[in-house]
Nucleic acid binder design. Structure first.
Lengths: 115, 115
DNA sequence: GCTATGCATTGATGGTTGTCAATGTATAGA
DNA sequence: TCTATACATTGACAACCATCAATGCATAGC
């Protein structure tokens, strides 16, 4: 079942430059939610590991051992990333394959850039 | 008690593309420290307010009231941003003027981009 | 059906963090 | 010198978070 195209309320995908004019409290909260999802060593490594993996996707069993964390903890971090719209999840049989949502990181980066 | 004493002047943190190859645990921790400094609504608004202020600098008294937080809390957030290398601090007389470190946000954004 | 595997979820716990009130420190002016 | 202003710092507290062990829930193979 290849279910693609997550809804995800298009957080911060807008064009708020952050350094152009004072952002609202709501905009700040939304962007902070996205950044909090990434601002963790384990999740940064997960992003890096998945992106560099074969076919740009990986299952939990591929990530647990090299990350050095419990399977339950890895599953938790992956859920955080999926909820934040960074990762997509595709369950095939017994395995759950995670993949970077195209453009997710880029949209966050764009907000930070002054230009 | 945060015993935090990390200089971490090297914001660019080398050139790890994050999505190119698995980053090390140390690289992940460093980047996470930077991102944690930004991943807060109050601090995001501070960044935005300072950048959009006259002459791209502002003192604590300029920021406390519009942010709706206590002076002590604002001072705390500003310290976090200075420690992370996002803001610079310049004390002139009784006032302390804060300013965005040029390229600080951009270097963080660069790491996130797949490019 | 039984068992093994892969993953998600729960409960508990120790650590971190955002916030305020209160206090400390330094500078400027009368 | 005395007072007012501008920040920084401290202590306390509640909320949140990362982690593990244990459990639950499917699916696949026998």
């Amino acid at each position: 079942m290849t279910i693609e195209l997550l809804p995800l309320a298009d957080v911060s995908a807008c064009c708020a430059p952050l350094t152009r004019e004072p952002i609202s409290a709501i905009e700040a909260a939304d962007l902070a939610t996205q950044l909090k999802a990434i601002a963790d060593p384990a999740r940064l490594r997960l992003i890096s590991m998945v992106a560099a993996h074969d076919d740009q996707e990986a299952c939990v069993c591929d990530l647990t051992e090299p990350l050095g964390l419990t399977q339950g903890t890895v599953s938790h971090h992956l859920k955080v990333l999926v909820d934040a719209g960074i990762f997509s999840r595709d369950k095939r049989g017994t395995w759950a394959y995670y993949r970077l949502v195209p453009g997710a990181l880029d949209s966050i980066a764009t907000v930070l850039v002054s230009a």
